[in-house]
């Protein structure tokens, strides 16, 4: 076992909602989650839709806070860390590229600019090359790129903050197979070259099989099984894992 980057202890997430009658209700999204994410590894968070995978991710850079429980990053309680520094250390990329209006360069330099740092031309070229795009795209308008290119720019924008952790929420779901494969290669590449800890939410078994070192399998807001990827795919312990692997488990 490696060293833990994130540790979660009895983490419960609730959200307010409304039932059909319009009354305020509380929905339990994550129920007493205890787990850890290993440093320098790619952990795939698997599960059918509605299992709480994305919500789990949102807790790790404090886009949301749990109702109870404790989350630590390198042993420090998330709530004790400066939120802006935390979010810089823990970068996030979503299903759909969420680029800002403006050029690719303006997008990539957004994070550093928040800290008063202007990104050098060389560094921005380095970043764009890292995600597999050409430097000639830097001055293009972000919305003139293809979705696949935009997703890579989103990645470069996050990497410009020099994060230690990358949270990826179904990053390939809007992409064609080639673009998706490129993103997967990029993930492995970033893990090896930069030593990033990558937490990768997906419902696609093949993708997890290709890149994951570890697997966390979720269902109905709980962790059903967490194991090294090889073990999870060859000898799943829980009956629900086996159902999911054979494509028979629904949300």
């Amino acid at each position: 076992m490696g060293e833990a980057k994130f540790e979660l202890d009895e983490v419960t997430l609730k959200r307010p909602g409304r039932n059909a009658a319009g009354d305020v209700t509380t929905t339990i999204i994550l129920n007493r989650i205890t787990t850890s994410f290993l440093k320098g590894k790619i952990t795939a968070v698997l599960g059918p839709s509605g299992s709480g995978k994305s919500s789990l991710l949102r807790l790790l850079n404090r886009l949301e806070d749990p109702a109870s429980g404790r989350i630590t990053l390198d042993g420090q309680d998330l709530k004790s860390l400066n939120i802006f520094i935390l979010r810089r250390r823990v970068g996030m990329v979503w299903q759909l590229p969420t680029l800002f209006p403006g050029t690719v360069l303006e997008n990539i330099s957004y994070g550093p600019r928040l800290r008063g740092i202007s990104l050098s031309r060389a560094r921005s070229q380095e970043l764009i090359l890292m995600v597999g795009l050409g430097p000639e795209l830097l001055d293009r308008r972000a919305d003139s790129l293809s979705i696949g290119q935009q997703q890579r720019v989103s990645m470069a924008r996050t990497l410009a903050n020099e994060p230690e952790v990358l949270l990826l929420d179904e990053p390939t779901s809007a992409l064609d197979p080639t673009a998706a494969a490129n993103i997967l290669h990029l993930m492995v590449d970033l893990k090896i070259r930069l030593g990033l800890t990558i937490i990768f939410v997906t419902h696609l078994l093949d993708q997890a099989r290709q890149v994951a070192d570890e697997v966390i399998f979720m269902h109905h807001g709980e962790i059903v099984e967490s194991a090294p990827a090889r073990q999870f795919f060859t000898a799943p312990q829980d009956p629900r894992s086996r159902l999911f692997l054979s494509g028979q488990l629904e949300g």
Binding site: N61, L63, F84, I85, R87, R88, G91, M92, W94, L96, T98, F100, P101, Y110, G111, L114, R115, S154, R157, T158, N161
Partner: peptide, 20 residues
């Protein structure tokens, strides 16, 4: 919401994220 949360995730304050 997507753009706002993206800005927050990059370290923006709520004010900067909502400024546009």
């Amino acid at each position: 919401r997507g753009e706002i949360e993206a800005a927050l995730s990059l370290g923006a304050t709520a004010y900067l994220a909502v400024l546009p």
